[in-house]
């Protein structure tokens, strides 16, 4: 089986992703508001959305934003949150290997959860249009930027943000992502370990270490889970595991 990346295919991917992208505008708006309230300038907020293009990691980075930005914590948190992309990319490898390296690694710069999910489903159905990943990714990126810009404009106009509850957007967003994933009940074990470790780190270890400590503790706890015959990402072909 082969696969190809064309302009026509990318346009069709863009059109398929466009309706879903409207939701991303709302998330981008939430991020723009949260970033402005955290003290980022409008330009910094737009740059972060444009270059990083990873919502959860961006929300988490806001937690680290202060008079001093802890570098190790920023790198570790960003990596830990985006580590899922390693598996997502790996699952699409059988498709992407048909592209020349330059196209392959450029296409991956717009890989996000939603267009990855569509691409992975397409791949499993035997379709050959990698444009769903690229065109879909561009649609998501534009929506994310539009939302961020709206949040930047809207956010600075809100005088008493606590009253509106906008400061809890991040927590609610993350919780929705956590619960919304296709998760097995056995995940409650590593998550409980992560919660305990994060709380202990919060009270007994240096500031901002709790996310890394909790994430690593949860990951290590995950090693003790029984081997499951079905991987979490349904689209991950067994022969590559």
């Amino acid at each position: 089986m082969s696969a190809e990346l064309t302009l026509k295919g990318s346009l069709s991917g863009f059109k398929r992703m466009a309706p879903l992208s409207l939701f991303v505008v709302a998330f981008g708006l939430a991020f723009g508001v949260a970033a402005i309230q955290r003290g980022l300038s409008g330009l910094e907020t737009l740059l972060m959305s444009g270059l990083v293009f990873a919502g959860v990691a961006q929300f988490a980075a806001l937690e680290l934003w202060g008079p001093e930005i802890p570098l190790i914590a920023l790198i570790a948190t960003t990596f830990a949150i985006n580590a899922r992309h390693l598996l997502m990319g790996a699952a699409l490898y059988p498709w992407l290997r048909h592209l020349p390296p330059l196209q392959r690694y450029t296409s991956l710069s717009v890989m996000s959860d939603a267009n990855w999910a569509m691409a992975a489903t397409d791949y499993q159905r035997g379709e050959t249009n990698i444009g769903i990943l690229v065109g879909g990714g561009i649609a998501l990126w534009l929506a994310w930027m539009l939302g961020t810009a709206l949040g930047v404009i809207f956010g600075s106009g809100i005088s008493e943000p606590e009253r509106l509850g906008l400061d809890v957007i991040m927590g609610c967003f993350m919780l929705a992502m956590l619960v919304g994933g296709k998760t097995k009940l056995s995940m409650l074990f590593p998550w409980s370990v992560a919660a305990m470790a994060a709380l202990l780190a919060l009270y007994f270890l240096p500031a901002n270490s709790h996310v890394i400590v909790g994430a690593l503790a949860g990951g290590i706890a995950g090693l003790f889970l029984p081997d499951t015959p079905k991987p979490k990402e349904t689209s991950k072909p067994k022969e590559t595991a």
């Binding site: 899922r84 598996l87 992502m177 956590l178 909790g214 994430a215 949860g218 995950g222």
Partner: peptide, 11 residues
């Protein structure tokens, strides 16, 4: 897999 969700829990 366990770490991805644990990050969110830890936040």
């Amino acid at each position: 897999n366990a770490m991805a969700g644990s990050v969110l829990v830890a936040v």
